[in-house]
Design a protein around this nucleic acid. Sequence first.
RNA 1: GGCCCCGUGGUCUAGCCAGGUUAAGACGCCGGCUUUUCAAGCCGUGUAACGCGGGUUCAAAUCCCGCCGGGGCUACCA
Length: 418
Amino acid sequence: MLRIEDTDRERSTPENVEQILDALRWLELDWDEGPVSQFGRAERHRERLEELLATGAAYHDTATGDDVKLWKERHGNRGYRGEPSDDPAAAVRLRVPDEGETLVADVIRGDVRFPNEAMDDFVIARGDGTVLYNFAVAVDDADMRITDVVRGDDHLSNTPKQLLVMRALGVEPPRYAHLPLLHGPDGKKLSKRHGAASVQELRDAGYLPAAVRNYLALLGWGTSDDTTIMGTDELVERFEIERVGRSSAIFDEKKLRWLNGRFMRELPLGEYTELVAAHVGRAPDETLRAACGIAQEKAQTLEEVWPLIRFLVEGPADDERAWRKVMKDGAGTLLQASLEALRGVEPFEPEHIEEALGGVLAAHDVKPGKLYQPIRVAISGTTVSPGIFESLAVLGRNRSLERIEAALERLGSPPNGD
RNA sequence: GGCCCCGUGGUCUAGCCAGGUUAAGACGCCGGCUUUUCAAGCCGUGUAACGCGGGUUCAAAUCCCGCCGGGGCUACCA
């Protein structure tokens, strides 16, 4: 059984365990949801602790942190070794051997050796009998028959302690793989202030699980031929944990966006529409599907789709700046001409629309932008939209004409129109 | 301080173990093409890297030593 350990320093609660599971489900990772965490095991921990106390592998010690410091000063920075005390209310320390070394045979980092002499007899239980992390986790791993532990680099130095506990307990340790940590653009450990740092935030930002899996796999790992884009099947087939690098990586959202865009564009339209619908909380109806059809080329995340197609589903946006910038220099005349041209287009489809508007262009001898931008603003309200012919087609003849007429009307009575 | 890990362009990686093309790919950036906007796409002998210093060797990103820098552990935290 594999155990993935989260690196969050907060004490585990059923709530945040549920959150983590939520993230894993969204990532569509394939796993058997067995016992996912261990709560209420104080009794069992206490039991194992008593065993170590009985054999002398652990002992009560009244020394405080300052005492330990002092001891180390006197003994040339060697690992602290205490004297057993009768005080049952004293903390419990594990007896660490003086000789030899504790070997962590890490799948990723190779053999890492920790000289026992340099390791303190560390505290495994408080004075009140409750146990500490390094002890609890070792007992739990043994009881759950964990065979593999995958966790962050920051636990590498804890591993010899856990190994020592397991040796004292007489149980076989699991294999370990310590992954490099992720850092934000500032080089510090990844955290909330780095934006979309958690899987939940990635989901909310409109990234696709497949793209996130691909990107994450590429952090700290690469194939020998440097393949970048890999579907999940390929990832599963090619990934080798032994090939994971040892240095921490910086999370680069720009590359994730690019990768996500690649995955988005390859999605079948039906699926694409459903994902967009779910993301914005609407029904994946025909209108949305048509809108998605002309936006798919442009968006890199699900979040970006809606602003692009909103005007096709609802009314045009109200962007005063866009209007002022575009609706001048004879825009009214051109819109009027387009209105008439568009009335006769049959069928009302992109290529025929293009043909009709091309006629207007020629008749008035203007550059395309002079005509298309006013139309764009008239139907969408903004200067940015999908292709103008496609947009008009999706909008349909009636709504297109209505919006152009409305724009004309607004243009007709401007405070300082042309 | 002690112990441990890490160090290839701005970023992610390949190459390192078994020394030998001009250090490769990707994101970004820059420029170009396309063009109705913004993107996307395509093109480019465009841009930029082996942390530093020694040593071994005909030859070092690669092997050895030292240093520097970053990180972790060093809690009666997890």
